[in-house]
Amino acid sequence: MRSTFFCARRRNAAPTRTHLNRRLIGYPDGVKDRSAAVQRRLEEAGLTRKIGSNQVRAIRINVSGTHEDMKRIEEEGRLDEWCADNLKYFADTFGKENIVAAHLHRDEETPHIHVTLVPIVKGERKRMKREEQTKKRYRKKPTDTVRLCADDIMTRLKLKSYQDTYAEAMAKYGLQRGIDGSKARHKSTQQYYRDIQKLSDNLKAEVVDLQQQKETAREELRRAKKEIQTEKLKGAAT
């Protein structure tokens, strides 16, 4: 499961398959798109503090599996079941009311879901160490205080926990978690396409080189045949 704060342009989407995409969560009355759904949730959450201009208001999450696994799930007729289990996982993990949008995309080679959640949490914020060390006494705030805080959701420990619990929820589909503690690094979409283009250019260069070698071999073969024919003619004359 991979989470990001933005979604790269889907350059490899096939326009002829766009009709296969599906919205998994309906928007409330009067809400027409994802941005409006995010704003509606913020307005109805009961926030007491003003939202800062630099605060994260929504988190985009992309869930999928390997191309082979997702095609297998699709061919087994379990794609709808997989979508339902994903929605249940996110509702149980982050709160159903915070999941404002979810879309199934099948216009690319591998089926996947884009989920949008608003990071509304409850409880007192975690004070920084320097605040803890000051002599100032903080008034204890109610434990049910509603806050907008992506930092509480995206801590290193919680991200690891999401990977673990999501793998457990998806085990029934034969999906496995990535290697825990792996040193591998995620490759951006832009870097992926650059690598593909480089590989394509290298292959083209190799094809040109092989073609040249082929032409050289043909020329040598013609020359050898001509020499053999000449030798035969000389032998016949003798």
Rank of each mutant, 00 (worst) to 15 (best):
F6W: 09
E97Q: 15
Y192T: 11
R57D: 06
V31N: 13
Y138A: 12
A36T: 10
R222V: 00
A101C: 09
A205S: 12
H67E: 13
A37K: 08
G235A: 10
A150Y: 07
E97M: 08
E97I: 01
V121G: 04
R23G: 10
T116K: 01
D164G: 00
R222K: 12
K172P: 11
L199T: 09
T18G: 10
L159F: 00
R127P: 06
E74F: 01
V121C: 09
K96N: 11
K158C: 00
T189E: 12
K226T: 02
C83Y: 03
I59P: 07
K198M: 11
K32F: 10
H112T: 04
R177K: 15
D195G: 02
D209N: 09
E168K: 14
T143G: 15
A58M: 13
L42T: 07
T134Q: 14
K71M: 14
E227G: 00
R223I: 01
G65H: 03
P142Q: 06
R17T: 05
A101G: 05
K225G: 00
Y166C: 03
H114W: 05
L157A: 15
V118D: 06
A101P: 04
E124R: 10
A169W: 03
R137S: 07
L221D: 10
K32I: 04
A102D: 03
E76K: 11
A84Q: 15
M70F: 08
L79C: 07
K226Q: 12
K50N: 08
G30T: 08
Q212T: 09
T4E: 11
G46W: 05
A236S: 10
K183N: 13
F90W: 11
A169M: 09
K141G: 04
S3M: 07
